[in-house]
């Protein structure tokens, strides 16, 4: 069974120049999309990946990464919607590339689907009420 996962990899500086993704492809036959990458000199690297592959291989690949000392978190943890601050204006809706926000046609209230979020951070700039937060 083929599965898809969106994960955030945080790896120490010592691993930044290692061919990690190469192993994912070659050894486990995983296909991946880099949604976002950020490597700051002398700090950690951060990679947001969408990985696709056989369930078995996916789990093996993730174990391989963990064994290297890479921290893996599901992607959605990173962007936080603070509902109490949200005014349900909808300024985030058109800006989000993955349609993570939807308006209920009846209540006109906005809801946020973390699973669709790819942490592009566009909504953080677009939300005038500071209801979207990023957590590193």
């Amino acid at each position: 069974m083929v599965r898809k996962k969106r994960v955030v990899l945080t790896f120490p500086h010592s691993l930044v120049d290692k061919p990690i993704t190469y192993h994912l492809v070659k050894d486990y036959g995983l296909v991946f999309n880099i949604l976002k990458a950020r490597v700051t000199p002398r700090e950690e690297g951060r990679l947001v990946l969408e990985i696709e592959g056989e369930r078995k291989n996916l789990n093996k690949g993730i174990k391989f990464l963990k064994d290297l000392g890479i921290r893996i978190e599901p992607l959605a943890q990173d962007i936080r919607w603070i509902e109490a601050r949200c005014t349900h204006c909808g300024a985030c809706i058109a800006i989000c590339p993955t349609q993570a926000f939807t308006v209920d046609p009846k209540t006109r209230k906005v809801s946020f689907d973390k699973k669709k979020c790819i942490v592009c951070e566009l909504c953080i700039k677009a939300c005038p009420y500071r209801a979207m937060e990023i957590k590193f």
Binding site: H88, C89, G90, I93, K109, V110, A126, P128
Partner: peptide, 23 residues
Amino acid sequence: SGSIRIRGKEVPTSSLSSYAKAR
């Protein structure tokens, strides 16, 4: 409705004022 057509392009729309709060 969520989008309008401008110059042949479907453009997504967003509101800055809150209809839910106005209600």
